[in-house]
C-alpha cells in the first residue's frame, strides 16, 4: 500500500500477495421510474479501494451515500455496472456465471444489517449454518453438525448444542446477529462485508458484536469492510476509514488520522455530529447541519458536497477534485488542499 490506487499495474493480475481486494472505478447505476419518466440513479461513481489481508476498512456514509450499494455490488447481489473487481489477484467478470459466483462467494461473504430479516424464520440455526458448509464443501455430511457447533462456539453462542436446534424467534437480536456472523464465517472467506451489522441492535450490545468481529478477524487474518454511519464505531474497529458521499469517496486514511485531523469539510461535519460521551458535556455546542444528501439522479459535475459545504467556492463546481496525498496513506478529494 505505497502507491496510490491509480498506479496499479494495468491488465494483469496484481502481484502483491498481501492484497485481498482491489476495486477500480466501481460504479453502479439503476434505472428508476416508469416509461416516459425513466431516470438514471448513479448510486456509486468510480470508487477505488484496496484492502490488504487482515485489514479492517471502515466505510462511513449517510443513507443514500451508496455504502449499502457498494456492499451489494461487491457481493454481486446487484452486479456493478462499471469498474473492476480484483479478488486475491484475479479479476472478476462483472457478468459472472453461476460458477464464477460460487467461487467468488466462497471467498467473499456478507453480514446483513437486519438480524431479523436475514434468517429464514422456518429454518433452525443448524439448517442455516449447514447451507454454506454443504454448498462450499467445507465439511463432509457426517461432520456437518460438529462443524456447526464449532462455528457457534466461535461466535460465543455456548453451549452450542443449546442453540443448534433453535428457530430464529427463540433468539434475541444479538444472538441472531451472531448466527449471521457464523454463517458468513462458515465458507472460510478471505473477506467479509459487514453492512451496518450493529445498527439495528441496542447500544449496549453493539460493542460486544464489534468485539466479536475484531476477535474473529484477528484470529483468522480476515479482511473486513465495516460499513456504518457511525464514525465512532468505524473508528473502534477499523485500521483505515473511507468516507463515502453521494457515491463518491471523499477521504480515506488511517482511522486515527481521520478522527484527529479530518480534512474534508464533510468528514469534519460527520465528526462534529457524532455523539461523544467521552468527549465531554457539549450541550451548548452549535453546528450547521442544514441540507441533505443530493438527489443522485441530477448530480452536478463538480464535488457532490458543494450544496452543503460551508467552504464551497468557484473551483468546486466545474469538475470533481483530484485526490491529494496528505502523507501516511491519508488522501482527500477537496480543492481546499490544492
Amino acid at each position: 500500500m505505497t502507491a496510490p490506487v491509480q498506479a496499479a499495474p494495468e491488465g494483469s493480475a496484481t502481484t502483491d500477495s498481501a492484497l485481498v481486494l482491489e476495486v477500480r472505478g466501481l460504479s453502479k447505476s439503476f434505472t428508476v421510474g416508469s416509461i416516459g419518466r425513466r431516470r438514471r440513479v448513479r448510486a456509486l461513481n468510480g470508487v477505488d479501494l484496496r484492502l490488504e489481508r487482515g485489514e479492517v476498512l471502515g466505510l462511513v456514509g449517510e443513507s443514500g451515500s451508496g455504502k449499502t450499494t457498494f456492499a451489494r455490488a461487491l457481493a454481486f447481489l446487484d452486479s456493478p455496472t462499471g469498474g473492476e473487481i480484483w479478488l486475491e489477484g484475479v479479476r472478476q467478470p462483472l457478468q459472472p456465471t453461476p460458477r464464477d459466483l460460487h467461487r467468488y462467494r466462497s471467498r467473499v461473504q456478507m453480514i446483513f444489517q437486519d438480524p431479523y430479516a436475514s434468517l429464514d424464520r422456518l429454518h433452525t440455526v443448524y439448517r442455516t449454518l449447514s447451507q454454506p458448509l454443504r454448498s462450499f464443501r467445507i465439511a463432509p455430511a457426517s461432520q456437518t453438525r460438529a462443524a456447526c457447533a464449532e462455528l457457534l462456539e466461535s461466535v460465543g453462542l455456548v453451549p452450542a448444542t443449546d442453540f443448534l436446534d433453535r428457530y430464529p424467534h427463540e433468539l434475541s437480536g444479538g444472538q441472531r446477529q451472531r448466527v449471521g456472523i457464523a454463517r458468513a464465517l462458515a465458507a472460510r472467506p478471505a473477506l467479509i462485508l459487514a453492512d451496518e451489522p450493529t445498527s439495528m441492535l441496542d447500544v449496549s450490545i453493539r460493542l460486544t458484536i464489534m468485539n466479536l468481529l475484531l476477535d474473529l478477524q484477528q484470529g483468522r487474518a480476515l479482511s473486513l469492510i465495516f460499513i456504518t454511519h457511525d464514525l465512532a464505531g468505524a473508528n473502534y474497529v477499523s485500521d483505515r476509514i473511507a468516507i463515502l458521499y453521494a457515491g463518491h469517496l471523499l477521504e480515506i486514511g488511517p482511522a486515527s488520522a481521520l478522527m484527529h485531523d479530518p480534512y474534508h469539510p464533510y468528514t469534519q461535519l460527520l465528526r462534529k455530529a457524532a455523539p461523544d460521551p467521552q468527549g465531554g458535556f457539549r450541550r451548548g455546542e452549535r453546528f450547521d447541519a442544514s441540507g441533505e444528501p443530493p438527489d443522485l439522479t441530477e448530480l452536478a459535475p463538480g464535488c457532490p458536497f458543494v450544496p452543503r459545504c460551508p467552504q464551497a467556492r468557484a473551483a468546486c463546481h466545474p469538475h470533481l477534485p483530484a485526490w491529494r496525498e496528505l502523507g501516511g496513506q491519508h488522501r482527500v478529494r477537496c480543492v481546499l488542499y490544492d
Partner: peptide
C-alpha cells in the same frame, strides 16, 4: 457505568472496551 462505557470513543486512543456481557 457499563452503559457509559459501551460507546467507542471518538477521540481517545483506541483500546478494547468491554460491552455489557449477557442479556
Amino acid at each position: 457505568q457499563a452503559l457509559m462505557q459501551a460507546f467507542p470513543p471518538l477521540g481517545a486512543v483506541r483500546s478494547r472496551l468491554q460491552g455489557i456481557p449477557g442479556q
